[in-house]
């Protein structure tokens, strides 16, 4: 994993932290809408799409946004039909998915870098 390819998972982790801060920490209420929207539009999808290494930023971003919206819809619907409607719970679940996937992506990249070059 190159330094540049570490940017998306790091951005996802930062976005997840910011979203958690503005929603549950009541930090910067004016920024709550834009921060939460940006994370939910890109974060969960990017965390899952970036490890595919598509080598095409536009395709990666499109798929990340589409998958994020799909996951947001599916998670929210699952909470609703399970009779457990809770926007906080849905957000927490999406943050968990994003953090796990982005964290694994970073760890996998780090282990690849540590692997000795074939001789």
């Amino acid at each position: 994993m190159t330094d540049r390819s570490r940017i998306p998972p790091i951005a996802v982790l930062a976005g997840a932290a910011l979203a958690a801060l503005v929603v549950w920490g009541n930090v910067a209420p004016a920024l709550r809408g834009p921060v939460v929207l940006a994370f939910l539009l890109v974060g969960p999808g990017m965390a899952l799409v970036h490890p595919l290494r598509l080598r095409d930023r536009l395709a990666e971003l499109c798929l990340a946004v589409a998958l994020s919206i799909a996951l947001d819809t599916l998670f929210a619907s699952a909470f609703l039909y399970a009779r457990g409607w809770s926007p906080d719970g849905i957000l927490a679940a999406l943050i968990a998915v994003a953090v796990l996937a982005a964290g694994s992506d970073l760890l996998a990249g780090a282990s690849l870098r540590r692997r000795p070059e074939p001789t």
């Binding site: 929603v23 209420p29 709550r32 809408g33 939460v36 929207l37 939910l40 919206i69 947001d72 819809t73 929210a76 619907s77 609703l80 009779r83 409607w85 809770s86 926007p87 906080d88 849905i90 957000l91």
Partner: peptide, 30 residues
């Protein structure tokens, strides 16, 4: 209400978009 009622009208039988909108509206604090 945290639920859908399919007897109200057709929209509640295909509620995915509205569930997402409700979630986004609440989470964004609107």
């Amino acid at each position: 209400n945290g639920r859908v009622d399919g007897t109200i009208d057709a929209y509640f039988n295909w509620p995915g978009f509205f569930v997402l909108t409700a979630f986004l509206t609440e989470t964004m604090g609107l």
